[in-house]
């Protein structure tokens, strides 16, 4: 039953995409987007930490219709090539994969293609900026992220899910890493893009932020945008990331309250 509904909404989104190509706007005159959000509004978050018992840390995150599962193992002894050992810090190993059923068209390879490898590298760079790796010399931290359903902003949802998983594993971080994808339409920045918006020829930008200090962990943009608009777009992305951080903060605190051992003392 749920599957049927999902297929319908996905079909509906595609239909909207066609309509857009035929002239429908991503942002209506009243200031609403395709899915009824305002320009700066984020999608609905649903998250759970500690979903697996066997892993050191794990988390499940839904951001709108994009769903991701993140698992963290470590810090543990470096497996495989001895040459990867760093004597002053831990190595972070990331793997990004997409379930074969996550997109409208069935994927052939869940991971290992060029796009996934690039995404893994970006995740690695993001978490090397946030995790205090110098505390664990000669060890390795594995972060595995899987997209179960893809509806835009895959990178951002992965970063947010992985942040929750790393916190669940008890690995020290400077701050949360929050990520958000923003786009620029009709002189207006749109926060947290969905698939229909991402695919609609919008210049989009993904930003991972350490919100308290305002440091940028990763900034990625592979579309064309006029230089004058860049500042406004980054500003909007930062605001959105700070919004994400508030939501993640709530999730972690809720989890802490529930999971803390009621001490007898």
């Amino acid at each position: 039953m749920g599957n049927v509904v999902q297929r319908q909404t996905r079909g509906a989104l595609r239909f909207q995409l066609f309509r857009k190509m035929a002239g429908l706007e991503l942002l209506s005159d009243q200031g609403y987007r395709l899915d009824g959000r305002k320009a700066t509004e984020l999608r609905k978050f649903q998250a759970r930490m500690g979903v697996f018992a066997q892993a050191d840390g794990s988390a499940y995150l839904e951001q709108g219709n994009t769903k991701a599962l993140a698992v963290v193992y470590g810090p543990h002894e470096v497996r495989g090539a001895r040459s990867r050992i760093r004597h002053d810090r831990a190595v972070i190993n990331c793997q990004y994969s997409m379930a074969t059923f996550s997109t409208a068209e069935r994927k052939r390879r869940p991971h290992g293609d060029r796009k996934s490898t690039e995404m893994s590298l970006h995740l690695k760079q993001t978490f090397e900026a946030a995790v205090m790796t110098q505390l664990y010399p000669r060890s390795q931290i594995d972060i595995y992220v899987k997209i179960l359903q893809s509806d835009g902003g895959n990178y951002s949802v992965c970063v947010n899910a992985a942040t929750l998983a790393v916190i669940d594993a008890g690995i020290p971080m400077r701050d949360y890493v929050c990520a958000c994808t923003v786009g620029f339409v009709d002189e207006t920045p749109l926060a947290d893009l969905c698939y229909a918006e991402e695919g609609g020829g919008v210049s989009s930008l993904a930003l991972a932020l350490l919100p308290r200090g305002g440091q940028i962990a990763l900034l990625q943009m592979d579309a064309r945008l006029h230089q004058d608009h860049l500042e406004a777009l980054i500003e909007a992305a930062m605001t959105a990331c700070k919004g994400v951080s508030k939501v993640l903060d709530q999730v972690v605190r809720q989890h802490l309250q529930e999971a803390s051992v009621p001490s007898a003392e």
């Binding site: 500690g50 050191d56 840390g57 470590g74 810090p75 543990h76 205090m132 916190i167 669940d168 594993a169 008890g170 690995i171 020290p172 971080m173 400077r174 200090g213 972690v252 989890h255 802490l256 999971a259 803390s260 051992v261």
Partner: peptide, 29 residues
């Protein structure tokens, strides 16, 4: 320590022993 402020790096319980402050994560190796 971040800008002279003592900051937590894990999610957990604060433990104070005299002048020493630790944060004990819920789950760890």
């Amino acid at each position: 320590v971040d800008e002279e402020k003592l900051t937590a790096s894990v999610a957990g319980e604060v433990q104070r022993v005299d002048k020493l402050i630790c944060v004990k994560p819920l789950k760890t190796r």
